[in-house]
Write a protein that binds this DNA or RNA. Structure first.
Lengths: 251, 251
DNA sequence: ACCAACGGTTTACACAGTGAACCACACAAA
DNA sequence: TTTGTGTGGTTCACTGTGTAAACCGTTGGT
C-alpha cells in the first residue's frame, strides 16, 4: 500500500556519491517505472524541496530540504554531533579510519566518518551504504537487530564483492552467532580487497541494534596487537555512544 | 497530482524545533487528513527511514535517512560546508547573529547559523523557517526570486507577528521594490520584538534567488554605523557565496 | 468503574495514479 | 538537408490504489 509514496521515496535512493545527479530517463530505467510516473514523482519531490533540478542540464539532484531536515533532527536529537568527536578520538587512538552507520531502508547508511591521517588509509568515499553480509558494521548490527529487520536483511541477495565475501545464508548465520558470542564483528577482505574491519553495534531504546561503529584498516597493517587495540576502542566507543543516546545496553 | 506523495512529504513539515516528536492523532489533526491515512503514510516514511518511531511513547520523529541524504548532498554539492565559515566570519565581523536560509517548500528554511558571542544576542532557536513578509531574508529573497515563486509566496496569508509586521500586499510590493533598488533588505521589529535584520539574496544558476544571508541584531544596538558595517558585510558575503556556489550574479 | 483519548486496523467504494502512446527538441551520422 | 536516436515532458482512458467512516484494544486520568 501507498506504493506511490514508496516509489517516490525510493527515487531518493538512486542518488549516491558516485551518481549525485540523474536525468529523467535514467531515473525511469533505474527505478523500473514509467517515465511519466517518474517525472511526476520527481516533480512532487522537487516541490517539497527534497530534490532540485539543474536548470541547465535538467538533471535532478538532492535538494535543500534534506539539509533543513537533517539540521532539525540534529537540533532536537543530536547524533552526528555526538558521534563525530567519538570517531575523531577513535581514529586518533587507533590511527585508522573510523565510521558510524545507522539502519535505514534495509541497509546501513553511513552518517559520519573520520579518516586516518596516514598516507595509506581506508577511504569511505563512494561507499555510503554498507551491505550486511560483507562488512563488520553489517554483521555487528545484524547480530543484535530486531527479528523482522534480520529477516528482511537475510532475504537480500548476497553479492560477492571479493573472493572472500560470504555468499551463503549458513555462513552468515554462523558469523552472526559468532558475533553475538564475541560482542563484536570482524571481516577480512570481504567487502574491498586488502581491507579489514572491526565493528560493534549501537543499541536503541528497545534493546535492538540501530546501527554500528567500525574501524577499517589495510589488512597488512593489522597485527594481533593492533587488532586488540582497535577491538577494545571500538567496543568502548559503541557502548559510550549507546549510553549517550540515552539508551541502555541489552542485559 | 500525486497527492498521496504530497501528503506524505507534507507530514515532514509538521516537525519543528519546538515540536520534534508527534503522535498519530496530532499528526492527523495538524495535517487535516484521516488518522488511517496518516498512519499509513507515516509507516511508509518510516520504512524509508525518513522518520522513526519512539518504541516507548509511540511518537514519531525525523529518522536517520535525513542525516544520510544531507551528508550525501553535502559530499557532492557542498553548501553548509561553504556557508558555515562565512557565517562565522560574518558573526565575528559584526558581533551579531548571522544565518543562511534556502528556499524550500514555499518558505525559507534555515540551514546554518552562527550566533553572536554577546550575552544579549538574537537566538535562532525555534525559528527554523522564515516568513517572507516579516524577515530581511524573506524580503531579500523574494525581491529577486523567480516570478512563479513570488506569485506563490504572495498568495500566503500575511501573519502579523508584531505590530510592526506589514500585512498588506501593497506594503510588501513596495518593500520588494525598495529592496531591489537598494540590493539588500532590512526589517525593524517585524518578526520578533526588538530584533532588526539586514539580508541579501543568494543567486542560483538561473539568475533567480535561491536563498538569503542575513544578520539579526537587538534593535537598540543598531546604530547607523553598525548598520553600515552589517550591510556591507552581508552584501559581500552573499556575493561571495553566490560565486562560490558556482553561479553568477544577475546583470 | 468509568470515560475519553490514544494508536492502530478493517472495509467498500471513489477517484487518483498509472503507463502506453504521444510531442518537441537536440545532437550525430549520413 | 534528412533520418535516427537520444533527451525531457505531456496526454488520457483504464484500473487498481488510497481514502475515510467505523471499528477495536490500551492507556491514563477522574
Amino acid at each position: 500500500m501507498t506504493i506511490a509514496v514508496k516509489r517516490a521515496l525510493s527515487l531518493l535512493d538512486l542518488f549516491s556519491e558516485s551518481v549525485p545527479e540523474i536525468g529523467l530517463s535514467d531515473a525511469a530505467r533505474l527505478s523500473g517505472h514509467d517515465k511519466a510516473t517518474v517525472h511526476r514523482l520527481l516533480n512532487t519531490l522537487r516541490e517539497a524541496g527534497l530534490i532540485e533540478q539543474n536548470t541547465g542540464s535538467k538533471l535532478y539532484r538532492l535538494g535543500p530540504a534534506v539539509l533543513h531536515l537533517a539540521r532539525l533532527r540534529e537540533a532536537t536529537f543530536p547524533v552526528i554531533a555526538v558521534v563525530q568527536p567519538m570517531l575523531d578520538a577513535l581514529a586518533e587512538e587507533t590511527g585508522e579510519t573510523a565510521h558510524c552507520s545507522l539502519y535505514t531502508n534495509n541497509a546501513l547508511a553511513v552518517i559520519a566518518t573520520t579518516e586516518s591521517k596516514r598516507a595509506n588509509r581506508v577511504s569511505m568515499r563512494g561507499s555510503e551504504t554498507l551491505p550486511f553480509h560483507a562488512t563488520a558494521s553489517g554483521l555487528a548490527f545484524l547480530a543484535f537487530a530486531a527479528p523482522d529487520v534480520v529477516a528482511r536483511a537475510m532475504a537480500l541477495p548476497m553479492v560477492a564483492f571479493t573472493p572472500n565475501t560470504m555468499t551463503t545464508q549458513a555462513e552468515l548465520t554462523a558469523a552472526l552467532t559468532e558475533t553475538r558470542r564475541l560482542g563484536y564483528a570482524s571481516i577480512d577482505k570481504s567487502y574491498e580487497g586488502d581491507v579489514c574491519g572491526i565493528g560493534c553495534p549501537i543499541f536503541g531504546s528497545d534493546k535492538a541494534a540501530v546501527g554500528a561503529i567500525a574501524v577499517a584498516t589495510p589488512c597488512h597493517r593489522l597485527t594481533a596487537e593492533l587488532q586488540a587495540v582497535i577491538t577494545r576502542a571500538v567496543q568502548s566507543s559503541a557502548r559510550e555512544l549507546t549510553r549517550k543516546l540515552g539508551n541502555a545496553l541489552p542485559m
